[in-house]
Nucleic acid binder design. Structure first.
Lengths: 336, 336
DNA sequence: CATCTCAATGGTAGCGATACCACGAAAATC
DNA sequence: GATTTTCGTGGTATCGCTACCATTGAGATG
């Protein structure tokens, strides 16, 4: 039935150690229920045979696959990459493996197909990015009865659990900062994914009527080049403009374009990005940004899932704080 | 045995369609061996019951898990992220799922543990980053008898298959470019992972004796901030210096530091990075770089594995070309 | 000293799918 | 028209492990 040579299996270990297969299984899964010297003997047999448990068989038998699926739009964005990495690490430490699904920024069908296919692995849990999912996806999830964490957004009535923050509030906070600093003219550059749109809406809605000079939409993900190109439409500013970008990448692009045209930052142009990316910190001046701990989101999501899998009832809605980092790319016009 | 409600299974579909379980299995796995109208009836039953095949059971039975493990140091680097994304996409299209392993840049033990744990899933194939693996890891792989593709490096005698390029040659090519352009003083900034080291060695070994002013090593991964800090040690240059960085991120950091100190690029300082990252393209001037198609590496690795899984004998060593992109951060000193 | 408890281990029956072989009916061959 | 081949389908055993219950014997309890 197999082309590959037969692998060492549980019963081989049992025979070598002179115990029943069940005892070997217990050594692996609940060592505290086995006498120490028996366990030692079994472990020696495992080591000498180079036994690697077949998790397919174990999962089938126990109906616990110890697999968790993570579905993110992309790993190319450092933001999701950080969450994914910490999520994978936290679950790996608990003996779970992460199956990766990349849904892209395209139509909902790709997420649907991905979820359906991945549910065939009988994952013990699911990580989804965002909270907008098609009815078909929701039905699949409900039928599977698997714990789900949605991340990077925060809504009041999650399907199951949600770990994230309010993107509208991010935009509002940035607007409040700019207004406090005395800016009167504003611009926004942002991607068209649901969360970036919410941030931009939060920002623009909080501004005085008529003060928005530019509201430019990029197709996700926001790139440095996209920021440069959009910036070209804004220059030259007549009076100081405050620009909010849905990503530090776009903000950095905008700043580079400004610099190459002799527009002073923050003198003529104040820039605030989002994501606290490395590129923003390394720019000169460093870019003011909205900082969110993406790794913390991943870790928290993992903790939520693990808690649920351990049978605990935890919170269903966890807010991760964001914080505006005021750096050199913005300044208070009222200061001397 | 299960806390979750019982799932629809193959035999339920068979009963609903009035056929034997085996026929349903064939509809899913080799539809061409089933009469069209029978297949249609079965498909209708599958749809109406919302059946999702249990791939754990299927994998156990057929000893083909349709899982492939991908082990990369990190997803935070856009370079690996691109390879991982295209690899995942290509395999997903063929019905395989990717289990993610993050090995970090730390000690070899983390890769060992990762490989051992992941082999428990009985993956049909493995993707490893780099070609340096501990003897323990190699023994595990040999015992498992699984096809392996190593990526992002190119050696003559791979354990199984390898898709990548010669990092020494990259460094040599950059040195050749700088020499051709007339530079006499050089510097290198690079990370300490094996491939970055090889690039830096290729570069420094190709330079005239005594012409290397700085050979700075960063701990991987190379960051923009690391590039800025290292650059601070080099300035101010007395005569034109040609700098090779093991990553565009470090190169961008170096350029930002240079700009903030009034060092002209490419006048006083020529900079060449590696990776053709977005940050390099968006800088002003854009950074000359060594471009490698990371997505192509992932796609090719997937093709290699799929070919092998289909029983074909393909090439064991595939070279992916690299190309130097000469942009604004370097120039020919001999030009007027 | 009889009884009870509990810790440690073993035996058996699946988990849900596929490999393999067997079988009848239709099609192809002579 | 008899025989061979093919096609479509079904039955059975098994993949490697764990849940569940049974069993054993040592120590605690009265």
């Amino acid at each position: 039935m197999s082309i590959r040579r037969p692998q060492v299996k549980l019963s081989d270990v049992a025979a070598a150690a002179g115990v029943a297969p069940m005892t070997v299984s217990r050594v692996l899964n609940s060592p505290e229920r086995v006498a120490p010297d028996t366990a030692e003997r079994v472990r020696a047999a495992i080591a000498s045979l180079g036994y690697v448990p077949n998790l397919l068989a174990g999962g089938l038998s126990s109906s616990r696959s110890r697999i968790v699926a993570a579905i993110v739009p992309t790993v190319a964005s450092p933001i999701f990459a950080a969450s994914l990495a910490s999520f994978t690490d936290a679950l790996g430490a608990a003996g779970y493996h992460v199956v990766l699904g990349l849904s892209g920024y395209g139509p909902a069908e790709s997420e649907e197909a991905l979820v359906a296919a991945i549910l065939g692995r009988r994952p013990d849990g699911l990580l989804l990015t965002g909270t907008e999912h098609s009815p078909i996806t929701r039905r699949h999830l409900a039928l599977a009865g698997v714990p789900v964490v949605e991340i990077w957004d925060l809504i009041d009535n999650p399907a199951d659990m949600v770990v994230g923050f309010d993107h509208r509030a991010v935009g509002q906070a940035v607007a409040a900062m700019f207004l406090r600093q005395g800016y009167r003219r504003f611009a926004a550059i942002g991607a068209d994914d649901p969360r970036a749109v919410a941030r931009r809406r939060g920002f623009t809605d909080a501004l005085p009527t008529g003060s928005l000079l530019l509201d430019h939409v990029l197709s996700a993900p926001a790139s440095m080049q996209g920021g440069r190109d959009a910036m070209a439409r804004l220059l030259p500013p007549g009076e100081p403009i405050a620009l909010f970008c849905s990503s530090d990448a776009a903000a950095a692009g905008a700043m580079i374009e400004a610099a190459s045209r002799g527009v002073a930052v923050p003198g003529d142009l104040a820039v605030c990005g989002f994501g606290d990316l490395e590129v923003g910190r390394a720019m000169n001046p460093p870019i003011s940004t909205v900082s969110v701990d993406g790794a913390e989101i991943g870790r928290t999501a993992a903790r939520c899932l693990l808690g649920r899998l351990a049978g605990q009832e935890g919170p269903r809605r966890i807010a991760i704080p964001f914080r505006i980092e005021e750096r050199g790319s913005t300044r208070n016009l009222r200061d001397p």
